[in-house]
Design a protein around this nucleic acid. Structure first.
Lengths: 247, 247
DNA sequence: GTTTAGTTAGTGTCAGACAATTATACATTA
DNA sequence: TAATGTATAATTGTCTGACACTAACTAAAC
């Protein structure tokens, strides 16, 4: 009984015999190697031909397994000499695609996304206020203390602050979720361009967030985060409206 | 300037001519058809041979594209007569895999997952208390009012309540995230078996959640949700401890 | 030096044959 | 009649071997 439960109700259990398909074997084995860390991000996998030879599987089937790995986002393919299959960095990108499809097919609105951000990021802000380390603070202040050169730079830094806050919550799950949602929004609604006065507004709310987290003030951090995201929402809608009236 | 920005700095922009690889073409085209709803969940795609003929692409390359689609979780493959490629239902499963890999590779602990659940589900409970509809309530009460026949049934229903709460928050993003995290936990730490007295405990806390949501009491709902999840956490650790001392 | 033309090591594509799997219909048999 | 076996068709799975494409590197030509 103890090991595996071969019997049930005094009757033997017959597990179905399942010979895995070749391509699936390639997929599973390599996936396991990558997840376990035997192949690390940046590593190059053996070539198709090597793989197929050592596994005793045709090149065609091997390629199918590799494509599946590519689909779930674990590897990329590079053509040419010095090319091959490379293990990708595993970060929140691995969810972004799926989330994108999920929300697109279920017609999720911008407002709903913003509302979700408010909900989650207010918590991370609150948690960050209690859990933040000294390194977290220095990283944040480094991002805030910017002499903005270009709008692109401003955006990337703006982005980073929110992610640093999530990081400071010391909860990886929340961190990755926050990151994924933000990246999704960025890639879907990226065409917003801020005017100068808006930059100042954003910097003000960001400073408020930072200050509260520094002072270990959860309530304040939550409040500041809320008004920052709300400001972003209004800003986006304004841009849309303006663009609409222009045409 | 207005339409698409063909010029920049008074110089014409030459977009690189990119002949997509054949397998990638198959992937992109079908993905688009599925996301746009041209092929709906349950639909069968044309057979490999049909696809390759109509697209003018070899069967091997077509198969690679299909494998990629399988990787991201949009289709499944069924062998045999009446088999083929079928469009999957698009639900939170499409993120679960990626989330699983992400957290595994970054060595996320059970406690961290539970903490994230507390954070997010407390909000959904709070939101549900204000946003719930009448249908939400009846669905919940249907799940709560159970004459449990088997443990499996108990588990599936227990699961459903939390998801129904998230649904009642009326925010799809949060709903899918809650669902994904719970499914992930279930598939990774599923071996917990409850004893009879624990079932009663769970039913008590669940009833408390329901009551607060029904009475439109956000604070109460939040509190009840928190203690329910905390109870689950303790329970799991107890089971682990017991199992450890048994051996 | 700069351009140009091979060389090399990978992935990308193709065609065609055959194997495996499953549903269905039909035949056989106890 | 009910269970079992058989044939067929439709679809995916696998294999082989050849050739094309791509990109980094190298050597020759100018």
């Amino acid at each position: 009984m103890k090991k595996g439960g071969f019997m049930k109700d005094n009757k033997p259990i017959f597990k179905p015999y399942r010979k895995k398909s070749a391509h699936n074997y390639v997929f599973e084995v390599l996936k396991e190697f990558i997840i376990s860390g035997a192949y690390k991000p940046g590593d190059r996998l053996p070539t198709e031909i090597e793989l197929s030879k050592t596994m005793g599987i045709s090149r065609a089937a091997t390629r199918e397994g590799l494509r599946e790995l590519e689909g779930i986002g674990l590897i990329t393919t590079v053509q040419g000499s010095k090319g091959g299959r490379f293990v990708k960095n595993i970060n929140s990108d691995i969810i972004v695609n799926g989330l994108d499809i999920l929300l697109k097919t279920h017609k999720t609105s911008f407002d709903e996304l913003i509302e979700a951000r408010k909900a989650i990021e207010c918590i991370t802000a609150k948690m960050a206020a209690t859990n933040r380390s000294q390194e977290n603070l220095t990283a944040m202040s480094k991002v805030l203390d910017l002499r903005v050169k270009s709008k692109e730079e401003f955006y990337s830094k703006t982005f980073e602050l929110h992610e640093l806050v999530a990081l400071a919550s010391q909860n990886k799950v929340l961190f990755y979720i926050v990151q994924a949602i933000r990246r999704l929004i960025f890639q879907t609604y990226s065409e917003i361009s801020l005017e100068e006065n808006n930059i100042e507004l954003v910097m003000k709310t960001h400073n408020a967030i930072f200050k509260s987290i520094k002072n270990r003030d959860p309530k304040g951090a939550e409040k500041a985060m809320l008004s920052d995201i709300e400001a972003y929402r209004k800003l986006y809608l304004d841009v849309l409206k303006k663009r609409f009236s222009d045409e």
